[in-house]
Nucleic acid binder design. Structure first.
Lengths: 283, 283
DNA sequence: GTCGATTACGTATTACGTAACAATT
DNA sequence: AATTGTTACGTAATACGTAATCGAC
């Protein structure tokens, strides 16, 4: 049985070459190292060093021991990392969503429901990634625009989101009572880059449009306010009356951009999530 | 940094369940264990146990930690084992031989030449096993009945061995001046089981013979002395005049059983083995 | 009452730093 | 002179055992 501190010191000796350098980096004295290495040789019953009066170097056996010391220390640190990570995970409620809007509703509820736990939300553009994450335990729940009908899942509708176009009053389409996506063909449109499935949806359905992407939500809102460029809003993206005076908000007729969100969990976890589902029903 | 003794204790707790049982098996007191586990939780900053007043059990995190502790301890013991094994190896001169006779000559020489080192000899029936062993460093030298002509090897002939038949004077072939292997077809023959290549050679070349195998050399010699059954000897297997009075020793004509032995090493090691090769030449 | 875990306390081990020394550069 | 490793010695940290306490079976 070799104590950890000695194994660590051996690894450091192999790495830094001289005892004095190791003493510096480990913040201990040189004599302490001398004794540690002597003790190590003693416990193993083996010579690990070539010693001249003023020089100590690992011999072949010592290098072997040092390589093994590295392995032991790696396992050691991996143990600490894994345990602390598992602990962190156990204190984290992690979920994934196909769009940002549901997260605005779900995250506050979870924070209140699981007080003291970290709520971690993950916005994805792809259904499959989310379902896989739910299966492997990465996510406790996922939010999609459709239920999962397989027996092992439980799905519950909880939110409705509908897309609108925000147009300058001067825009050629600003007078329309409603729009179709294809009407926007060829337009310049301001768009946020982190909007889950919406991103690929509108890019696919509005041909030849030029999307001006913004990564920062606050920046995007600022530009929307000041620039005469079309942009998107939804029934839930408009908080209060933040609608700029010089713009009009026109609904789309297309059914693809009128979606319902479903909160989905594994059936085996439904029990412990009743509080969440009740809270979602309230709204 | 968790000291080794704590990791070991954690692994033991997972294995034995209660602190008191662990205390017994590790020969320490229960309080020591209590403190160790408290210290462990403290260092990791994580709860590893469910504690009732009188009972302590690993929780999920604790079991994870214990599994990792096993891994760490395995790496730990593997380090000690590997280093001590390498040390032992470095103090051992290991060689392989295709037959026992050369070993009787080589081992004493090596013992004298490498005083303080262990001489380990390995009798094999198969050339390939020996060559592989030489290549991978298992053997410093090997002894075959032929040289290895590849550039990387150095081969040197050093011993001649010739097979004889030991027959009771009453045997039908006892009067012959020489024999061929096939003459022994159908005979009962006493044979030692650990004689390297000889074993398969005579079994192949003497059809239908019934070989009476003995594992113990001393037992075999005793039986040879008292029983009227044919057996083998060679020019080097007869030490002094141990030839029983009532037996005759008849040479074989077959060239297969008149062999020369070659002491073979890697060319890169020839330098350090000059003393050995000189000593072999002397005889 | 017995058994298992924890706390309190004194002891023994031991890893540490400082200081002094030796030898090499 | 500066650097590096070793030895000697006193100190501080700490792991240990014993004894006492508390609860549960």
């Amino acid at each position: 049985m070799i104590e950890t501190y000695i194994i660590e010191q051996l690894a450091a000796v192999a790495k830094y070459g001289t005892l004095s350098r190791v003493a510096e980096t480990l913040h201990i004295s040189q004599p302490a190292l001398t004794r540690s290495m002597q003790k190590l040789e003693d416990e193993l019953g083996v010579k690990l060093f070539e010693r001249s009066k003023n020089r100590i170097t690992l011999n072949k056996l010592g290098e072997l021991a040092a390589r093994h010391a590295e392995v032991v220390m790696t396992a050691h640190y991996e143990m600490i990392r894994a345990v602390q990570e598992a602990d962190r995970q156990s204190r984290t409620f992690s979920y994934g969503s196909i769009a940002p809007a549901p997260m605005w509703e779900v995250t506050p509820i979870l924070s209140q429901l699981y007080m003291g736990m970290t709520v971690s939300s993950d916005l994805q553009e792809n259904d499959d990634v989310l379902v896989r994450g739910l299966d492997d335990g990465t996510y406790k729940i996922i939010i999609l625009t459709h239920p999962l009908d397989e027996e092992k899942y439980f799905s519950c509708e909880f939110l409705h989101e509908k897309l609108y176009m925000l147009l300058p009053k001067s825009h050629r389409l600003a007078g329309r009572p409603s729009l179709q996506l294809k009407d926007l063909a060829g337009e310049n449109i301001l768009i946020h880059s982190k909007i889950g499935f919406w991103y690929s949806l509108v890019k696919e359905k509005i041909p030849d449009a030029k999307f001006l992407e913004q990564h920062e939500l606050s920046t995007l809102r600022e530009i929307v306010k000041t620039a005469d460029i079309p942009s998107f809003e939804t029934n839930v993206s408009i908080v209060g009356d933040s609608l700029p005076k010089n713009k009009v908000m026109i609904p789309f007729d297309d059914s693809e951009v009128d979606v319902k969100f479903y909160c989905i969990c594994k059936k085996e976890n439904r029990q412990e999530l009743t509080a969440l589902y009740s809270a979602l029903k309230m709204n």
